[in-house]
Every structure is written in structure tokens, then in C-alpha cells.
Nucleic acid binder design. Sequence first.
DNA 1: CTTTAGCACTCTATCTTTAAGAGTGCTAAA
DNA 2: TTTAGCACTCTTAAAGATAGAGTGCTAAAG
Lengths: 345, 345
Amino acid sequence: MVAPLNDRKEQILRAVVVNYIKTAEPVGSRTVARSNPAGLSSATIRNEMSDLEEMGYLVQPHTSAGRIPSQLGYRYYVDNLMEPGELSVDDELVISSSLSAEKMREIEQIIINSTRVLSSATNQTSLIMGPQFKKSAFHQMRILPLDGKRGLVVLITDTGFIKNKVINLDQQLSQSELHQVVSYLNQKLYGLTIDQVTTSLINELKRDLFRRLEILEQAFILLEESLKEEKQIRVFLGGTTNILNQPEFKDVDKIRRMLNLFEQEPLLFKILEDNSSEDDIVVRIGSENECDDIKECTLITGTYRIHDKTLGTLGVLGPTRMDYSRVISVMRRLVDYLNQSLSSS
Amino acid sequence: MVAPLNDRKEQILRAVVVNYIKTAEPVGSRTVARSNPAGLSSATIRNEMSDLEEMGYLVQPHTSAGRIPSQLGYRYYVDNLMEPGELSVDDELVISSSLSAEKMREIEQIIINSTRVLSSATNQTSLIMGPQFKKSAFHQMRILPLDGKRGLVVLITDTGFIKNKVINLDQQLSQSELHQVVSYLNQKLYGLTIDQVTTSLINELKRDLFRRLEILEQAFILLEESLKEEKQIRVFLGGTTNILNQPEFKDVDKIRRMLNLFEQEPLLFKILEDNSSEDDIVVRIGSENECDDIKECTLITGTYRIHDKTLGTLGVLGPTRMDYSRVISVMRRLVDYLNQSLSSS
DNA sequence: CTTTAGCACTCTATCTTTAAGAGTGCTAAA
DNA sequence: TTTAGCACTCTTAAAGATAGAGTGCTAAAG
């Protein structure tokens, strides 16, 4: 839908974007003239830049300053101009060493480790949403007697979540009776996603089992609390302070707004969930983001899956002036890693 | 060791501290004169303040400004002048409602909830170190067969930690054999703190059980990883952004240093551990803190226990200009709450 | 018709100057 | 011992001055 630019305009736009990403200073015509392979004079460049501004790709902070890319400019750059970024050898080394250093761990460890790698490799703030518990399938439930009065309820899902809770067994219950009840539950619930275990289903089961109800009251509480958990999905943050190194965040007020956002997990969750589309990697520039708080930022997200089932999303958040090429390569590398290491566990 | 001040000097010092805590502006003699019950003139106050400065309790930012309390001044205020703070009715309401709203939860939930209450009631940044896993006593270990090939190892401590891990049971093992091994382990380990379960002890047990060793290799891995966990003690933060509201942190560089500190859990852990003394509540003002990064801050910590056994520590971190009275009351309230709600679970 | 050199103009950022205000310290009187 | 009065100091905010970067326009050159 956007008319393509001619070669020269593209070169100039690219030069402005690349330069601005690097220096964070408005780019003047002389600077472009120097870096431009075609030996054009600054005056010619000026005319072209003036055109690009009128077309909406560049913006002037004030009359006598250089140009900076507009949101549209970045978009055009990402879609058409950016060379398909290869991971630099250095980056590749850093990433693969810090990924392989840790052996295979619990799922949560893998996730946390990924934020760390992502933020340190991109110098931005990174966020990761882990596999969603509520979309996992019920695998099995066990009740493990601890001593006379207490038992441990264990709930296991297909994605490897293990929830447990100590419950009081107020009344003695014979081993076989307990076993009977538990296998009844397993039979009824097997394969359902946690989403599907609704309160009404639980109530129905309760009716069926009404005789043993009192003993198992607390097992049901675990189930119900697991349902509520959907509101508490954990989003992990890495490199929060990185965003402070960006010159666009030198204002204390902006910093406060940003950090405030970081403390609100539900919002972060929403931001990430909005972006888990079919595509592996999504780039949202400025106001392309739904969330008001990050309308001045770019969010690059990647989705990782097993067998086409979406497990979670990771993101890099920074100012629109971001090293798109580099971040995207790093992101792709990490998504690959997660796809691989989660499917093998 | 510090010579007590006479009444009038105490009144003036208190007035300066209270006023400065409230306004964050240097306090002049006229301001003190107005708020001082004894109807002294500003000139008299000036003389006294001059004395107090010479004695080290007050400081002048520059020649023609009011006075602000020095570290020594705050210390004298906390030790001698501060009225024993009662929780205001409002505060009490906010705290007790947000504590009781949540029913008894998992230990981790209680901890996290406490940071939230603490930071929002004090408008400062709060940090909590939960019960230390390595100092908990081994209670029991169970192995729960899942299906033919896999089992779930569960490790339970006296303080309510539950660790678990799915392991592969490569070889079939009869139910009774498994039971035998597990009860042998429980017998050997019961009552030991995780600290005491050293690698050498594990190796010894491995020798005893060498015949079933292969099957249980991974159970031992859980044990060993639990030991390593000491390096990963979790410190929870609440209200990180509150510290940005303090005028003393209007400098971006200070903010960065502070937030950077917040991302380094081991450091936070050290800071909190240094303060878990016999006293319930400890106030560390400015350079009284060991850690260089918070030499311009005040840290107020509270320790919670069960039956005289230290479980964990919570802290409030802010500028030395802090509402000591209020924070201490809130802290005391929360320590009581934790003592109570953890001992009953 | 396109490109380029030259130049006046604009706007920002920085530094200096100025003025107002707050608070002190000192002195002398009560 | 306390207080009123006053000169003095220092900070902060506003106002003015200057340099530099970059533009847009015009007119000449290719």
C-alpha cells in the first residue's frame, strides 16, 4: 500500500536511520553526504530529505536541526531496507556460551536464563511470558499421605508444570478409598486443559463424590486455585536498567512511568499476549502498539512453540530508535533455542 | 556515649528533623520558632542551631540556608526523641484489610504479599528475604511413580518448603524395593538441616545403596541441586518505583545505581542478612550500612521467627530522610503478622 | 532538467549577567 | 540571657548574549 521509494531516496533513508540508531542525534545532510557511496553533494541530499519529510518518513525536531526517522520511516526500513541480519560472530559466541553453560534445567530456569541472555545481548529490557499453565492439559493428580493428618496433593500437566499443596486430612481415610477417589478424578480430568476444568465441572464431580467430600475438600481447593492462577501468570523481566541507558529516557518522569509499567504484571502479560500471532517474530513500532504506555517504544516479540502449539512469548522493549537488525537476529536465535530445548524435555 | 542534650536543644532538634522529614527542605530558624511551643524568637533558635551544628547533629547545605539533620542527628532522634509510634487508624485499616483479604496461602504467597503491603504503607521500596531453604530441616522425601518410566521426587522441609522434580526410572523397580530405599533415606536424613546434608554424606549414602544406585541417581541430583540452591535465595522487592518519588533521587545517575543494585539478588541478600540480629527491628542510618551502595540511605529491617528460630528478614529502604516513626510501626505490625501466620501453618 | 556552491536565516544550547529571596551571623539593646 | 535589627552570603530563576549546526533558497554550472 505504501508506494516504493526510488533507489536514491532509499539509500538516503537508510543512511539516516542507521546513523540515528547509532548516535541518537538528528542526522544532517552533510553527515549523510559523507556516508553515502554515491558522491552526491549535501545540497542534493537536502532536497531529497525535504521530499522524504513531506512524504512522512522523516521528521525535523525543529527548523534548523537534522532529520530523524518517523515511525513510518522505521517501518519502511524494517520492511524493505534492513539487510537480513546475521548474528555477528561475537554475539553468537556470547549467546551460545551462556545458553550451553547451563545444563538442561527446570522449565522456569530456562525461561529466566533466557531473559538474561536476551537483555544482555541487546542492551534492552527483555520480558518473557512462560508457558501458560491454564492452557496446559491436565495430566494427573496424586495424593501422597505424609503422616496421620496431612497429605500432599500433586497436580501435573503435560507441559511439565507441577503444582502441589499440603492439605489436612481431617478424617482417616483408608488407603484404598483414597486411591479410588484419585483414580476417579484422573479418569474424568485426563487430557482436559486447565481452562476446561471449570468451576461447574468441579461442582459436578463434587456431587458424584459427595460421600468422600469432606476429606477431599482441600484437594478441590488446589484445583480451584489453579484455575484462579490465570490472573497470576508470571512475566519475567531482564535488564530493567538497560532502558535507563537510552538517551530518550533521561527524563525522570518517563523513567517512573516505565518502571511503573514493569511492576504491573497483568499489563505486561497483555502486551505480550497481543503479539503472539502466527508469525514467529513481530515488530511493533511506536503507536502500532496497543498499550498506551509504550506508544513511544518499539516492542519486538518472538513466539516459541512445540508442535505448533504456542507455549509462550518473549519480547524486547526499547525506544523506537533501536538496532532492529541486531535485536531481530538475537531474537530468532533464542526462539530457535527455546523451541528446541523445550521440545526435548 | 553521646552526651544528652538539654531540653531546649532536644526540642529544636526534633522540630528540625520532623520538619525536614515532611518537607525535604532545609529548615530555617523562623520555621522552628513558629512550630516551637516555647515562644522563643528566631534569633535564640539560631544560636541553638549553631550550637547543634557544631556538635554534629545538624548540617548546613550552604552558608545561607536552613539546617538539615546529619546522620548523627537522625540517630539521636530515633534513639531519644521519636515518640513511640502508634499505627494511625488509617494505616492499621489498610494493612489489616490487605492482609486478611488474602486467606492463608503458600508460604511464598505470604511473603510476596507482605512486600506489597510494606511498600504501599510506607511509600518506600521494600525487600523481603524468605525463609532460607538451606537452614530448614529435612522432613521427608517421597518418590511417587507416575507411569512406567517416570517418577516424581518430592522433598519436604519443616518450614514448609516443597521441592519436586520429575525423574526417569530407567529400570523397573519393584514397589517394595523403592519403598525400602526411600524409608532408608528418610531415616538417615530426618531432622538434619539442608545445610548438613553435605556432598560427602550423600556419597556415603550412595555407597550404602550402591545396588539400587542407578535408579536413584536422579533423586540424588535433586538433593544436590537443593544444596546448590543456597546461592539462589530469593529476595522479593516491592514498590521499586516508590524510591523515585523521593526528591533525593531526582538524579538519573543515582536512580540507575539504585536500580542496578535491585537487580543483584546476592547483594540484596547480603544486605538483609547482615541485619538479622537478635533484635526484632534494626535501624541502619546512612554509613551505618555496610554496603557502599546504600550509604546515603536508611535501611530498617525486621526479623521474623518461629520459636526463636530466625526464618527471614524484611526491610524498607529509602533516603535517610524517612518517616522513621511510621515505618517502624508498620514494620512491627508486619513482623507480628508474619510470626503469627507462619507459626500456625 | 538536475546538481551544486554560496549565503542569509533560524533555532538550540550554553554561558553570563542580573535580580530576588531566604537565612544566617553579628552587634547592641532590653 | 534573650531579642530586634541589619548587613552579608549564597542559591535559584529569569533574562540576555553568543556560537554553532543545519536548513532553505537562489543562481550558476553541468
